[in-house]
Simulated scan of single mutants.
Amino acid sequence: MARPKTTLADQAPDMNIEQAEALDSVQHAEVERMAVILRQFSDGIPFEPYRYELIIREHLSRSAEAMLAAGRALIVAKESLGHGDWLPFVERVGVEERVARRMIQAAFKFSDPKTIKLIEAAGNKSKLFELMVLDDEEIAELADGGTVVGLELDDVERMGTRELRAALRDARAEDQAKDKLLADKNTAIDRLTAEVQKARSRIQRATVDEQIVAATNDVAGVCIGLTAEILTPLREAAGRLLALSPDAGAAIAGHVTQVRQALDEISAEFNLGTVTSLVPDWATAEEE
């Protein structure tokens, strides 16, 4: 007969069924998470602190690829060790906790098998650490033979650590400068757009009377300007022609009639009627 499964409720009689099931669910999730970590980063080797210390020490003294293997082992260790055991563990391994953290980050960042060419081009952990400033899409593009921030795989392999760091830094500075320029342009555009919207709002808020006054002033300004543009040049031209040919009055009258007809067309189009005089009656009245 099969032995019945032991649950947390059996181990802790004071715990109610809901609490026990909740704890069982949490434990089950932790077991599944650990299984994923072991499957992805452990190379099939179960965790045992002393064994992983040896693995990490061995990898630390080797290439970039070996450093990533050490980073994967550190991931398993960090997930497996209890609270307070992590710092003593990395001290025994002989690596600073800050460096261990970067190695873990690198192991996650370069976990895709497609990045193997980029890892090989880097060659050592120092250059691999420099490449961590790239985002995941840039790393994938570079590993696939593309050009990222002006660099190709051959450049990564050829450059030393300092040269690679400088190239990445300069590329980032250039990108930041472009981003700032674009942001400044967008800010200026936003400011102008806001000013235009405010101007439109002011126009829309204007009362009907204010709009009538403004339109009346526009008409008056056009007519005054048109009168000045016509009378003075026409008077001068007509005077010169009559001085040379006293019989040219009929020709001048024909041209003046064309101007008058154009003005009459506007009056008819808007049904303006006619005004016999712009001078008020009081200005021409005789004194008694």
Rank of each mutant, 00 (worst) to 15 (best):
P113M: 05
K127C: 09
K125D: 13
F108A: 11
S126A: 13
M67W: 12
F47A: 01
V76K: 00
V26K: 06
D43S: 13
Y50Q: 12
G123K: 00
R72G: 11
D24A: 14
P49H: 03
P49S: 06
L118W: 02
A140L: 12
A70Y: 05
A69T: 12
M34G: 11
K114Q: 13
I75N: 02
A140P: 08
P88Q: 06
A107W: 05
R102N: 12
G82L: 10
R51C: 05
V99Y: 15
L74S: 07
Q27R: 15
E138R: 14
I75E: 13
I119M: 03
E53Y: 07
G123W: 02
V90G: 00
N124H: 10
L87W: 10
K109S: 15
R57E: 03
E65G: 15
Q27F: 13
E58H: 14
E79A: 15
R33S: 07
R57M: 03
V95H: 05
G123T: 02
E30Y: 13
N124K: 01
D43G: 10
A35N: 14
A107G: 07
K117E: 09
G71N: 01
S111K: 13
A29T: 11
S80C: 06
L128D: 10
H83C: 06
I119R: 04
A64R: 00
D43V: 09
M132Y: 09
L87K: 11
R98A: 14
S63F: 02
S80Q: 04
A73H: 03
L54W: 08
V93N: 05
H83L: 13
S63M: 01
L131N: 12
E30Q: 15
V76D: 01
H28F: 13
I45Y: 09
E32P: 06
L128K: 06
A29Y: 11
V31F: 10
E58P: 02
P88D: 00
A35P: 09
G82H: 10
V99I: 04
E53L: 13
L74T: 00
H83P: 12
I139N: 04
F129D: 14
L60T: 00
R62I: 02
I55D: 03
I116V: 12
A70I: 05
E96I: 05
A107E: 05
H83G: 08
L81W: 04
A122I: 04
E48V: 10
N124F: 07
I55A: 04
E130L: 06
R92E: 06
R98V: 11
L134V: 03
T115P: 05
M67L: 12
H59L: 00
D85K: 10
V93D: 02
L54T: 11
L68R: 01
F47C: 03
V26Y: 12
